[in-house]
Design a binder for these strands. Structure first.
Lengths: 127, 127
DNA sequence: TGAAGTGTACCATGAGATATAATACACTGT
DNA sequence: ACAGTGTATTATATCTCATGGTACACTTCA
């Protein structure tokens, strides 16, 4: 499913959160798809079940998956997230900061514009 | 200069890094501008000098400032960072991931495109 | 020369986060 | 009943974070 980087500064449960979130928002895990169980994933990654559970709970709080007692955890239906404007603003700020840094690193307005256009056309590959 | 958020999940030194980095890449601190000394900033933020020093060292390693023994720390000249392609790729991946999330949250291709265009035109306000 | 301000390097300590281990319980499906 | 699921709890060890305190080498300026 994905690999852990034990040499990373990121904590393990944080890596699980990021990797799982990436699988969900990129559509690899489609809405209502079943995720690996806590115990199964902990065995796969050779990690403590508590660590996986902590990651799953964080993802549930952020709305990326939901849980059914006794059944398992599933990728959320993004329709439920009725346009979280607050989160959109957070992302906008993040992108703004990234653009500033690209300019700081010496890229021109045209180069940045081209980079963004390229990322947008990649869109076909995701969806 | 900037404020700390003690309720944040981010560590203090991490907040110092992010805030100072923002001041540098946004041009508030221009190349060769002097930064507050370790002791001065630690007094301003009522934080331990060691914490500020840790942040400054991190920023120096990342190339955002430089140090002269006995003189102080200064904002770096980005010309020195001759187009760090590695860092640019990291940023590109971050933006790509953010765009995926915007789509996941229900934004259309046109809306995302408009958002990016708006961020690019803001550019005048930064530089 | 001396004093003040600068970055840097230690060491020690407490608080909190992280990851682990081991149990236990309630729920669902077959 | 049974196996698989999420969840909760307790305990422990380790690491990072932040602090306090001290010391040293360097620069500038009176």
């Amino acid at each position: 499913m994905f690999q852990l980087d034990l040499k990373s500064r990121k904590s393990i449960y944080e890596q699980v959160v990021d990797n799982m979130k990436e699988l969900i928002i990129s559509g690899v895990l489609k809405p209502e798809d079943k995720l690996p169980s806590v115990r199964e994933l902990s065995k796969t990654l050779t990690v403590n079940p508590n660590t996986v559970q902590k990651a799953y709970r964080a993802l549930e709080n952020q709305g990326y998956l939901y849980t059914v007692a006794g059944l398992g955890t599933f990728a959320a239906c993004p329709d439920t997230n009725i346009r979280d404007e607050r989160l959109i603003n957070v992302i906008r700020d993040r992108i703004r900061s990234d653009l500033k840094e690209l300019f700081y690193l010496g890229m021109s307005q045209e180069e940045v514009s081209a980079l963004l256009k390229e990322l947008l056309t990649e869109r076909g590959g995701w969806k």
